[in-house]
Design a protein around this nucleic acid. Structure first.
Ligand SMILES: [Mn+2]
Ligand SMILES: [Mn+2]
Ligand SMILES: [Zn+2]
Ligand SMILES: [Zn+2]
Lengths: 138, 138
DNA sequence: ACAACAATGCAACACTGTTGCAAAATTTAT
DNA sequence: ATAAATTTTGCAACAGTGTTGCATTGTTGT
């Protein structure tokens, strides 16, 4: 378990620090996406708030996690697949937010469909967020 | 012009106040969506920040405007179509955010497609945000 | 014009996110 | 293993966003 975390950090050319290991482990343990506040609560007073912000930024830049657009305008993060890297993200999957339990899921196997836009509009990224009832709450 | 604004407020059983008239006129003038901060800047020191927040809330509740899910996690509002009312919103259209000019558009004629979800997930709302280059910037 | 009611401004507060800088930890070179 | 070079962290300070309570003001219907 700890091995996998250290390997992940090494693979991304990041120095091995307590905060990074712990924050990364929270993502590996979680089944849904995590908000900054979630990590802050899970970590207690272990790290400074600022450290969490900077660690999340770093992880995003390295392609280890990705942000999720949410309808309630909170920022959430989830682990990326192995295919993702610093340059290339593979964020073409649908995200699901449960109205009941609040969990946000990456539906990795549900691909966002393309839509035809009006004349002159050029799509670069498509984000589809589905809200409703998740499989655990139904 | 002023007539239309007063009518819209009356139709929604809202008392006619300076703030509501001005804020509503900003939406009628704008071609894209507006954030709270946009209205604050347009209004100068005319109203208190809190009044703007409360007015926006009221307009949303009455079905006059709707919030737009954005990828940069800012809250933006746009005028609803006439079909929208306090109970029923018709928010099944795609939204577009221009990476160049930052404008957010309601693409009223582009409908969000349905997607097949994994077993146990039940969709209640679908929000599709497309980012890219708008017709004015291309 | 008046009473009843609703909306506003102000103050205070909580939460989110960013930056600069000194101290501490990690990595690299000796 | 030690020391130097580089990164990361914690702290403090700050700006922005959004909410609430309460007294004051404005709007509405009679
Ligand atoms: Mn995802
Ligand atoms: Mn819209
Ligand atoms: Zn759920
Ligand atoms: Zn544009």
């Amino acid at each position: 378990m700890n091995e996998r975390i250290v390997d992940l950090l090494k693979k991304n050319h990041l120095s091995i620090t307590e905060s990074r290991k712990k924050i990364l482990s929270h993502f590996l343990d979680a089944n849904g996406a995590l908000a900054h506040a979630d990590i802050e609560h899970k970590s207690g007073t272990e790290f400074d708030r600022v450290t969490i912000y900077r660690t999340l930024q770093t992880f995003v830049e390295k392609g280890m996690i990705h942000t999720i657009p949410t309808t309630d305008n909170s920022v959430r993060y989830a682990l990326c697949k192995d295919e993702c890297s610093a340059g290339h993200h593979h964020d073409d999957h649908v995200h699901f937010m449960c109205d009941e339990c609040g969990t946000t899921y990456c539906l990795d196997h549900v691909i966002v469909p393309q839509v035809a836009l009006p004349e002159g509009f050029k799509a670069i990224r498509n984000d589809l967020v589905v809200s409703g009832i998740c499989n655990k709450c139904s």
